[in-house]
Structure formats: C-alpha cells, structure tokens
Design a protein around this nucleic acid. Structure first.
Lengths: 238, 238
DNA sequence: GTTCATTTGTGCGTATGTATA
DNA sequence: TTATACATACGCACAAATGAA
C-alpha cells in the first residue's frame, strides 16, 4: 500500500535512540554510509533525518555531521502570575536568561497598540534569550514605555528581577493580562538563534502585563522552539 | 552567497496571493508548468510549494492539483470557563462540532491519571471533530467516568451542550482546571483528518475540567491544526 | 465499471556549492 | 589548504490518487 522507503531508516534510528544504542551527543554515520547500509538513495536518507530533526531528536550540522539531541521538553506555565524562575527551576534544569541588547526606540505598531501609547511614543526594548541546559529554548523582546519607566533596562539588569524593578517605580503588584500563542514555520535567523533545524517550527507568544486595575505595563513577543517546550495553564487562584 | 533557487518561485507566489492575482480556491499551474516558467527543476518547485503548504497558504492534493487556501486563523480562548460556542462564533465564522464516535472503554493511562480513577475503570470516550467554515480545525476525544456519568454521550448528544448535560447530573458549575499545549509533527492519519499537508504540524491540547472544589470531571485530548488556530489566554475574572 | 489522461508523491543517480575542522 | 560532510539543484522514472470519458 505505502512505499515510504525512508521510513525504514527512520524507524531504525528511533529504535536505536529508544533502546539506548544511540544516546544524546552521539554522531550518526554519514549520509552516504546510511544510504549504503540501508540500500537506499541518499535523498531518502535525508528525508528520514529531516523528519527526525523536525521533532527535535536530531541536530543536523553542515560540515560536521548529524547528532542525537537530548530532547528534554521544558514545561512553561502561563498564568495570572507568570514568573520565569518559579516556572522552570522545579524541573531540575539549569535555566539562564540573558540580556542580549537594549534599545530606546519608537514604539513598533503592535507595542503601541498593546500599551495604549500614541504611535510616536518612545519605548525601551529589551532583547533576551533563554537557555535551558545551555540550549536556547526561546528569545524575544519586552517593551516598556520610556517615559513612564526611565532606565528600566538598567535597573532590571542590576536587580535581576522584573518584580523587584517594578517596585522601584512604586508598583507592588502586576499580573499577566493577556497571552496569545500560535505556531508558524521558523525563519532562517530564528532557527539559527535557537540552534535548531530550519524545519522545526516556532511558537510565537505575545503577552501583556498589567496593573491589577488593567492598566498595561509592558508587552512582549517571544519566539519558542516548538520542539523544546510544553505550555501549561493552571487555574489555581494562588 | 546562497542559492536557494526555490525562493524565487516562493516569493512570486506569496506576492501573487498578497496582491490578489491569486485568491482562495484558485488552482495553481502544475508543477512541471511552474518549473518551466521559472526555468528551475521540479524538485525546487516542490520545495517552494511545500513551504507554503506548511504555512497553510496552499493545499496540495495528489491527483487534483495545488490550490490557494483561505487561511483564516481562528482564535480560541483558553480560560477558567472555556466554552466552545462562546469562543468561536464572535468572529463570524460558522462553527460546527460533530460527534464522530462514542465508546465505552477501559480508561487509557493518561485518562485514569487525570481523572484519578483506578486503571481498570471504565470511561466513555466521545470523539468529536470541529469544523470552521467546513474546514476541519481540530479533532479529539473527551473522557468521562462511566460509573459517575452513565449515558453521558447520549445525553450530551440530545442536549447539545456540555454545560446542560452536567446539570442533569446535578452539577451546576465546573471550570477548566488544567490545560497543556505542545507542538509536534502531524501523523499521517491526523493530517488526513484535518485535510492538511503532512508537513503542517499539530498542536496537542490536553485538558482537565473539574468541579469548583477541584474534583476532576472529565479530560480531553484535542489535536489542532497548527496553521489554523491562535490560542489566547485572558485573565479576566468574568 | 473500466479505462485513461492528468497531477502530485516517491525514489534513484549525479553534480556542485558551502560550512567545518 | 585540504578533506569531510551536509545543502542545493537538475533530470529521469515510476507509483498513486483523482476525475472524466
């Protein structure tokens, strides 16, 4: 009924990983070697490897080879009180959020809309990347009104915590007002930043944080590796 | 620097769609025709079409041809009180949820765990499919303890509403206890059911509904077309 | 109901480009 | 610089699904 020659090698590799014959970091045979071993064409080998790379099981690197990935899916909780550290540390992975770049710019369209600013307002943009076990899982930017939160990035960088930084502006409490999630194919720069195969899609998360009365404080747009995260929403009233 | 011959045709088609030269439902030239027009190989044509199909912009159908898709992304709100109709109707799309199949089975592992049942307990399984403008956007199953909710499927089918059905068991209120979302490549049957290209990923949503005191009532696992939905989480206290 | 033309799907072979060590 | 290994691209052949004759 079905041909799918390439599935033979795909299944073989999955079984090798499952059984432990291949483990994280191992280098696979080269494409021509696999082609010969399974008596199929190199195109079919590539199709099988590509399918596994899309699931995040393999990392294919031009000029180096193809390697087995660890594939530990992180769980990230979205809720009324979203806090990064509380979210990821419980699972025993080392998580690091790094500030990559900070700018003072005219508010992009979606930012002005989210923060209810006029289109020419200035905002601070903080670009951050999140690494879990030294592997990038997400990157993106958050935006704050420059007038209302002068030096936000600098204070945030010193204090190391968004909650603490808000306190310096007299804000004792804030919450996640709105979050949207959708999936799309990754763009070349994105797959490069996330160090993942170009065919692995990304999850785009747009969010708005606000005061208890609903006044928006900041918004963010974060790109997650679709293969490396599971989102959870729990409705506990903390 | 880079060749990427196939991007020429990709960009051309995107522009054709954007400008309106191609609109939803239109049939594209055949692959050999496109190959000749752009003076590239058929493989490159296929790579371009595949990329557009992954975004949900094209529908590629063996034996028929390749067509432009409408690409209206639905917005589905996940919150404390998740109700399908309230969710989708506001956007002016016709939504239809159909019961496909109902069974009385021994609780699968993940169901027993979610509903706190012992592994040999019986549950009712309701398989449903959701169509928006006659296009499938999601399908999946929900599970109820057969002992606690006898004839659940039958009553639900007659009443047409889950909320109403719960009332017949004396349950006046329930809420969404937990929701998880992750992305993965679609399996062949899934892409067939969703009538989408095999390379479009799916979003897997697992959910548990419960009584106000936290007692689980039901759980579900729904497969969404990743190209056709955006999830939103709003933290309004209704 | 069967046949047949059309169109996409799968697979092989080959050549050449490009990143890595 | 050189060798290795993956990336892109062309051409060809045949399989499988569709729809119309």
């Amino acid at each position: 009924m079905i041909k799918h020659t390439w599935n033979t090698i795909r299944d073989e590799l999955v079984e090798d990983i499952r059984s432990g014959r291949l483990s994280a970091g191992d280098k696979l045979p080269t494409e021509p070697q696999l082609a010969e071993r399974f008596s199929i064409g190199r195109h079919s080998v590539r199709k099988a490897l590509e399918a596994l790379a899309r699931e995040g099981r393999l990392s294919i690197e031009q000029g180096r080879g193809t390697f087995v990935e660890a594939l530990p899916r992180l769980t990230y909780t979205i809720g009324k009180r979203t806090r990064l550290r509380r979210n990821l540390i419980p699972q025993g992975v080392t998580v690091e959020g790094k500030l990559v770049e900070a700018n003072r710019i005219v508010a992009p369209d979606f930012v002005a809309k989210a923060l209810l600013l006029n289109p020419s307002a200035k905002v601070t943009e903080s670009q951050r990347i999140t690494l879990a076990n030294d592997l990038p899982v997400a990157f993106g930017a958050s935006y704050h009104c420059a007038e209302r939160f002068p030096e936000f990035v600098e204070r945030r960088d010193v204090l190391g915590s968004t909650t603490e930084t808000y306190r310096t502006y007299g804000i004792q409490d804030y919450f996640r007002l709105k979050t949207t999630v959708h999936s799309r194919p990754s763009r070349p720069e994105e797959s490069k930043t996330l160090k993942q195969h170009p065919d692995v899609p990304v999850l785009v998360v747009n969010a708005i944080d606000a005061l208890p009365d609903g006044t928006p404080l900041s918004c963010s747009r974060v790109i997650w590796s679709a293969a490396r995260v599971t989102f959870t929403m729990e409705q506990t009233d903390e």
